[in-house]
């Protein structure tokens, strides 16, 4: 799995369920989202872009060198704000202007 859904923060809005290209996310009996098929996640990050409650963390599996950092993103009209939190609490923020092209 390359996402982890925080059941306490999830508001059950179902946006992640609807957007997942593998329809891998379902609701549990408490009405909270969970990833039913963790090994089937592509890592496309569509769900974290949808989640306004910031309940979903994106991470790299240990088998591909992941070190436990968690990534989230906030999608605003004029700004995309990526936030990476390392296990020791170090936070990296990268802001991208969606109206600006890649330089490469």
């Amino acid at each position: 799995m390359s996402i982890a859904i925080n059941q306490k923060t999830c508001v059950g809005c179902k946006k992640c369920l609807s957007v997942c290209p593998g329809t891998l996310i379902k609701l549990n009996q408490e009405g909270k989202a969970f990833i039913k098929y963790p090994k089937d996640c592509w890592g496309c990050s569509s769900c974290i872009k949808e989640c306004q409650a910031k309940a979903i963390d994106f991470y790299l599996g240990a088998d591909i060198g992941g070190r436990g950092s968690r990534m989230q993103v906030e999608m605003k009209a004029d700004q995309v704000i990526w936030k990476i939190t390392e296990t020791d609490g170090t936070i990296h923020v990268i802001e991208i202007n969606p109206k600006a092209s890649n330089q490469y």
Partner: peptide
């Protein structure tokens, strides 16, 4: 920095890998 941004726009795993390494 430009590479990190470019990858966030299409394959965010790579930027995450650079940052956490």
């Amino acid at each position: 920095e430009e590479l990190k941004k470019a990858y966030l726009n299409m394959a965010p795993s790579q930027t995450l890998k650079w940052l956490e390494s």
